[in-house]
């Protein structure tokens, strides 16, 4: 559930984040109107509390996966909720790329698309990896919440057995499992980021 939502939110958030950076004023593909629209979409969707967003997205889940309940169904709202977050994170990572480096590549006659694929993304990769790690960890939290409203998964377990039926041991083991999952994600993320960092 978390893995799939991360995947889909990156698919949506990555291009969004890059577009926001390049369409900005003095960006490599300046488009003030498009930039304003993207900014608004990201800001509005980021300000929705997750639970509400999830309910709003139920119809979409039904269209895409044919159901609003269960693990597969909750991937849709989770991805939608995390996408603007990913977009922001990617935006920040891309903005960290040295302006001088971009300029030197422009001075070689590079096209915007080359700059994006061959400079911005590779140069920002260590930071992007850490950002995606953070997204995944947030999604673990969100998915627990999704569990509460019928999303299945560990959160569901913790709530159903732990909260409603007072089975403390099941709740505790769910919590411990979540902690272990979060720790492992962070650990792997850090390792990966180091591996792609050539500085």
């Amino acid at each position: 559930m978390v893995i799939f939502s991360t995947f889909f939110s990156v698919i949506i958030g990555l291009p969004l984040g890059i577009l926001v950076v390049i369409t900005e004023k003095n960006g490599i593909w300046e488009k003030p109107k498009l930039n304003w629209i993207l900014e608004t979409i990201i800001n509005v969707s980021r300000s929705f509390p997750f639970i509400i967003l999830m309910i709003l997205v139920f119809p979409l889940s039904r269209i895409i996966v044919g159901s609003t309940i269960g693990t597969t169904a909750s991937i849709v709202p989770l991805s939608v909720a995390a996408s603007p977050f990913v977009a922001r994170i990617i935006e920040n990572s891309i903005k960290e790329v040295d302006k001088g480096v971009i300029e030197s590549v422009i001075s070689m006659g590079a096209k915007p698309i080359d700059i994006i694929l061959k400079v911005l993304i590779p140069e920002a990769m260590p930071s992007i990896v850490l950002g995606i790690t953070l997204t995944m960890i947030n999604l673990v939290g969100f998915s627990a919440m999704a569990g509460a409203i019928g999303g299945g998964g560990l959160g569901d377990l913790a709530i159903r057995y732990g909260f409603y039926r007072f089975q403390t041991d099941i709740m505790m083991s769910s919590v411990i499992l979540i902690i272990i999952i979060v720790q492992s994600i962070q650990f792997i993320g850090n390792k990966l980021s180091k591996a792609v960092n050539k500085n």
Binding site: G100, V101, M108, G109, K111, E123
Partner: peptide, 20 residues
């Protein structure tokens, strides 16, 4: 872009791609 291919440029801060 054609012109720029014909003009090399170097900078104070080198501006190399760190990932390469």
């Amino acid at each position: 872009r054609g012109l720029r291919k014909n003009i090399g440029m170097i900078f104070q801060s080198f501006n190399l791609l760190n990932s390469k």
